[in-house]
């Protein structure tokens, strides 16, 4: 049995991986954060029903996914995206907080190694949340080039993060 404050603490600790999962449905960071807040409120209201942190987080993932799909259906009249069944498979394998925390710290350092141009590309896409077509127009690139550049940057950042985490292990 969890108390409301323990529910809030447990969910806040998992905020980043959870919102990332919800964003794979909403494709909108702000909407994903709204979903997360709704899920927190629901979880606190049902505090007595959870028996472990794992159960709570699993429930939050399912509840948030369903809520995100509902919101899209209400807003757009339909949901076009990954199937429920595939989202459920992804949920089971989704990175947990420990892994994400370590990645988060490393990513900040890796970002510093990017060229200003590449940082600007990521900023427009992920901070300003501009559609890729708009990013392409602003940066004077073709749309397909922007997709490929983003894919390359993701790969480079992923490699950099893995490298830094290996170094961290050696630091101990």
């Amino acid at each position: 049995m969890f108390r409301p404050e323990e529910i809030a603490a447990a969910l806040l600790a998992e905020r980043l991986p959870l919102t990332a999962y919800f964003a794979s449905v909403t494709r909108d960071f702000h909407l994903a954060e709204d979903v997360f807040q709704e899920v927190c409120a629901k979880a606190v209201a049902r505090a007595g029903e959870f028996e472990s942190a794992v159960q709570l987080v699993n429930w939050a993932r399912v509840a948030g996914r369903n809520r995100a799909i509902d919101i899209l259906r209400t807003r757009d009249g339909r949901h076009v995206g990954l199937s429920d069944e595939l989202l459920a498979v992804l949920a089971e394998e989704w990175p947990r907080r420990a892994e994400v925390d370590a990645m988060h710290e490393a990513l900040e350092h890796c970002l510093e190694e990017l060229t200003p141009h590449n940082r600007e590309l990521l900023r427009l896409r992920y901070f300003e949340q501009r559609r890729c077509a708009e990013v392409a127009e602003r940066m004077g690139r073709k749309l397909e080039t922007v997709y490929q550049a983003l894919a390359r940057l993701h790969k480079a950042l992923g490699d950099c993060v893995r490298g830094r985490l290996k170094d961290e292990e050696a630091w101990a």
Binding site: L16, P17, F29, M103, F127
Partner: peptide
Amino acid sequence: ASAQVRAQMLH
């Protein structure tokens, strides 16, 4: 999943 999480972190 890594790309999704990374996107959220970048945001």
